[in-house]
Design a protein around this nucleic acid. Sequence first.
RNA 1: CGGGGCGUAGCGCAGUCCGGUAGCGCGUCUGGUUUGGGACCAGAAGGUCCCGGGUUCAAAUCCCGGCGCCCCGACCA
Length: 497
Amino acid sequence: MAQAQKITPRAKDYSEWYNDVIMQAELADYSPVRGCMVIRPHGYRLWELMQRALDDMFKATGHQNAYFPLFIPMSFLAKEAEHVEGFAKEVALVTHTRLKATGKAGAQAVMVDPESALDEPLVVRPTSETIIYAMFAKWVQSYRDLPLLMNQWCNIVRWELRTRLFLRTTEFLWQEGHTAHATEPEAEAEARQMLGVYRTFQEEWMAMPVITGKKTESEKFAGALRTYALEALMQDNKALQAGTSHNLGQNFAKAFNVQYQTAAGGLEYVWNTSWGVTTRMIGGLVMTHSDDNGLVCPPKLAPVQVAIVPIWKSEEEKGRVLEVGEGVKQELARAGVRVELDARENLKPGAKYFEWEAKGVPLRLEIGPRDVAAGQVMAARRTGGKAPARLPGIAGSVTAALDQIQAALFRSAKDRREAHSIRGASKPQFIEFMKGPGGFAYGGFCGSGACEAEIKQETAATVRVLPDPEFRSPDQPKTCMWCGKPSVAEAVWAQAY
RNA sequence: CGGGGCGUAGCGCAGUCCGGUAGCGCGUCUGGUUUGGGACCAGAAGGUCCCGGGUUCAAAUCCCGGCGCCCCGACCA
């Protein structure tokens, strides 16, 4: 019996399962370059759909796209003290501009031309605050130029010691928003607004429940005044930071001299924000919904939403079945559904089912001679369940099913998260929870970095966020879950990616 | 950067201990028969056994030295 590669079950080895799901869904592949992956067409289509939804939301909130250089003069990075310290350990540098032929064979055929050394090395952007604010300084003159609301879609390089497909790679794709405002409250409102945009996207498109909130001092972005983040709980009960939004204050404005003339004629530094989400979200999507049969993709982002699998025995049946299949395909396409008719002749229907399941297709329509005779198709949901659907009005029942699947995925992910969240635990209970099943632990926090470090040391858990009001427990803790001193804020703790 | 595992056909692996013509399954190609949950028969193609040295009549196998990948930890989106 022909058997495609099996996916390692989650219960056996979660990491292997994650890799298997990605490889068999053909989202990505390992590349010859250490720490770098190739995003394959199916994975890139998913990213494109994510981009489109997010970009529409950025535009709707007044942002414009632009593109800034990949290379940043090393001295730029040095201009903001905290920032450079945060990235110093993981930047790639361009130091030379030429190779030269040696006349030797093989790997020795070329060498770096020592004559081509740059006077000042260029940093391959690990993030673009410095180069963007250097430009903002040029563009901002008066309060009439503000706010300046920009975004860029690009790649980023951070030299990571240990990499994982989508979750942490040396090069990755992201979007970075950068804005300049006249006042601190405006910048704060922007940072909060974009956090909300991300939340909407992740909940409504990715069907991934998130907790929003503020990062502690130790977890905030290097160079920011405040960092806000979204945290999701994966199926192994580890937290994934799914996006960040920073109020940068005037730190970069001062470093790059981004000033404006006020209506009253004074000169002030602008207030900046930056915010970003990355291809890491694809890893989050995989680990939120997928199962031991492969990828489960929320319909709104599924590269293929419906796969039609025709079934026939004779040539005559094949003709009838394909004709109906083609008709259904056209009707669904007209209704805006991303649909594939799988008419391959070298695979039996069962093999096609497995393939589309591994690729995360939410809905499969099976059309055989019996269905054609009955004027129906069999609709099988990726999340389970198979039922006939009448051919007349098929587009309506398909889109309704996709909507139901989308909603059900969010609901079950949220239920799972809540089932793995604890509130009001004592210190021993907290330790037991983190060493055992793990998940989100809500508890009082004294605000001290020492407490945070001790907890990390003993349990590997960190403060993911100090949650926003809508995510806080009904009964706010009075004391620090760890040291017993008065609590300054409720915190959500978890082991994290 | 430490610990563990691994590197043999496109993919998954056996062979390595104990040196002796490089194999199996899947996939691929050709032809035929098939098709309601991973089809079958017949034929065929496909290999620097990770790389470099060494030992030997002879190395995938033994010795020395590299490189790479995956997993776990430390550091980070």
